[in-house]
Amino acid sequence: MQETIINTVHLALRLTIPFLLISLGGLFCLKTGVFNLALDGFALFGCFTSVAGTYYTGSVLGGVLFAGITTSLLALIFAVFVLELKVDAIVCSLAMILICTGITRYLLSAVLKSNGRFVLESSLALKPIDIPFLENIPIVGQALNNLTPLAYIAFLLVPVIHIILYKTKFGFQMRVVGLNEQAAEATGVNIKRVRYIGLIIGGFICGLAGAQLALSINMFNVGMSDGRGFTAFVILVMADSRPVPALLASLMFGGSEAAILKLSGYGINAQILAIIPYLLAFAVAILPLASKHMAIQIKRHFAARTYIAPIEKLPGDE
């Protein structure tokens, strides 16, 4: 039993990482007010370039860095279109997704000369690492152990990004640009610079997410991001682009995917389980706003009773 729990938690964490990395990358775009819907495309692009990079450099690290850098460049192109040519960010995102789908498929057949998928030697996989001291902590430690280095980086990024956002000058400027562009401009913040940097960092992290997806199973297949970028976008909207809530929301999606895999082993239908995280996302997207709406109604009602009623009663009472 304990074994099963540890296994499930471990699996959940593994499945959380891509969601977490993509949403942390997207955070740098959304927080600065750039409505980047192309996260899925960026991640897919990262998948491809990580595999291609690993193939050509013969080293996993080379592949990871190549993915990060090329995805940053892609994000830079996106940034030029949105910030310099003033293309609507959503439209540009949709174009980017198409381009990423097309370019990965095209280059897969044109450069790597294969169709549908490309498998690397298993020695070129991003392997889990064994951290001895975690092994000794019961349950928690065991579940946390044996993840890929990128997974630990992803978890570390959460507090790091939190500190950047709330303690440093650049993070503060990012938040201000996202909240009120005009105010930021009027106080001398270079909006474009902040957004460029945000998008490039975001692209880099999305590239890492692609590397994690592709290199942990040492292969690339067409469309392997499988809509995770859109889920990450939903995660960001739910978390209001804050790192810690984004971690929690990612855990929710990763956890439910793990549950699906585990439970389908017990004869529960996998397809119906696959819908559950989306239903949860519906609830998380709608409920806060709906309850805020209700709260306003209730507050108004009580305000009307405290303010208006006494005045209207007075003449009658006297």
């Binding site: 440093t168 000058k169 650049f170 503060f172 909240l179 009120n180 930021a184 009027a186 106080t187 001398g188």
Partner: peptide, 25 residues
């Protein structure tokens, strides 16, 4: 007004000129 309504007075005031050490406010 060029103010960020969601932020505090302090954050609005230091926006244009903040003392930092190694990037930290």
């Amino acid at each position: 007004f060029m103010q960020v309504e969601e932020l505090s007075i302090l954050e609005n005031v230091i926006l244009a000129n903040m003392d930092t050490r190694a990037g930290f406010i």
